[in-house]
């Protein structure tokens, strides 16, 4: 159970950073921290103590395997996370070119 609580703490660290940081890059990093806390949780869900890697060998019976499905999910989710982060960084660089700063307090064209 401890590992899940630690994952949740990591999630909260990311959320704290997302809310309090004022720098575009740090916001992107906080989002990545949140993402990876969830990836860790997904992998841990599929982990079984003393489990083997999930390659079924017909010769051996009654083996315990770890659950391969969360691993496949995490691999997919990492790729999606990469796309999101790349997109976020591209926009952050464009914003830097327009405003000459990463400070989010300087960017307030949109309100109301």
């Amino acid at each position: 159970m401890t590992v899940y609580i630690l994952c949740f703490v990591l999630f909260l660290v990311g959320l704290y950073g997302l809310i309090t940081r004022r720098n575009l890059i740090k916001i992107a990093i906080s989002l990545s921290i949140m993402e990876f806390s969830i990836f860790l949780m997904l992998v841990l869900i599929g982990y079984i103590d003393n489990g083997l890697m999930p390659i079924v060998d017909p010769g051996l019976s009654a083996q315990v395997y770890v659950d391969p499905l969360p691993q496949a999910m995490v691999l997919t989710a990492i790729v999606i996370g990469l796309a999101t982060t790349a997109m976020l960084m591209a926009i952050a660089i464009r914003l830097y070119r327009k405003y000459k700063t990463f400070d989010i307090r300087e960017m307030k064209n949109l309100r109301g």
Partner: peptide, 17 residues
């Protein structure tokens, strides 16, 4: 433009969350 990028960044952060 300035507004488009700002809107997109905001959208991405909330959408990512």
């Amino acid at each position: 433009g300035k507004t488009e990028l700002e809107a997109s960044f905001k959208y991405q952060v909330l959408g990512g969350l």
